[in-house]
């Protein structure tokens, strides 16, 4: 089997869907477990996917998370339609958050999402356009 064959998982994320939050990450995690990927690697992928999923649910109007699982790596691509990030440098700082109060009251939006994702992944790429949306591409090697 070539390194390029793999499994594609895709999930649609809706704004403010806190009930469904974490479902996509859990399913990605379960697939990785079925493939026998090392537990510590699974943990990094699951955390990155979950943080990305939450960002879409909190900030965007809708989005899609895709996981491309290959034998040597997992690629996560998260695209959303939403406000975009005005200053990516600032958003990458721990503790910086634009989440409104009602979101913070629920225990989310602590400003740890992006830095956490960057820490858990081997490649982290973020592109954002104001009032259009954000695209994240992350790679974690197995």
């Amino acid at each position: 089997m070539s390194a390029e064959s793999g499994i594609e998982l895709e999930f649609v994320l809706e704004s403010a869907d806190f009930n469904g939050a974490g479902e996509a990450s859990s399913k990605i995690k379960r697939t990785l477990q079925q493939l026998g990927v090392r537990p510590d690697i699974i943990r990094r992928i699951a955390i990155s996917a979950y943080e990305a999923e939450m960002n879409v649910i909190i900030h965007a109007s809708r989005g899609v998370i895709k996981a491309g699982i290959h034998s040597d790596r997992t690629e996560l691509v998260v695209e959303d339609e939403g406000p975009g990030i005005a200053d990516i440098g600032l958003a990458m700082q721990e503790g910086f958050s634009t989440a409104p109060d009602h979101i913070r009251e629920m225990g989310f939006g602590a400003g740890m999402g992006l830095p956490n994702m960057a820490r858990c992944t081997d490649k982290f790429d973020i592109k954002s356009e104001k009032n259009v949306g954000t695209k994240l591409r992350m790679v974690i090697y197995h």
Binding site: M1, G6, Q33
Partner: peptide
């Protein structure tokens, strides 16, 4: 929960 010791076989099983 692993489906196969060989990751490519596990992928086909998925």
């Amino acid at each position: 929960m692993r489906l196969d010791a060989d990751i490519s076989k596990a992928m086909s099983k998925i």
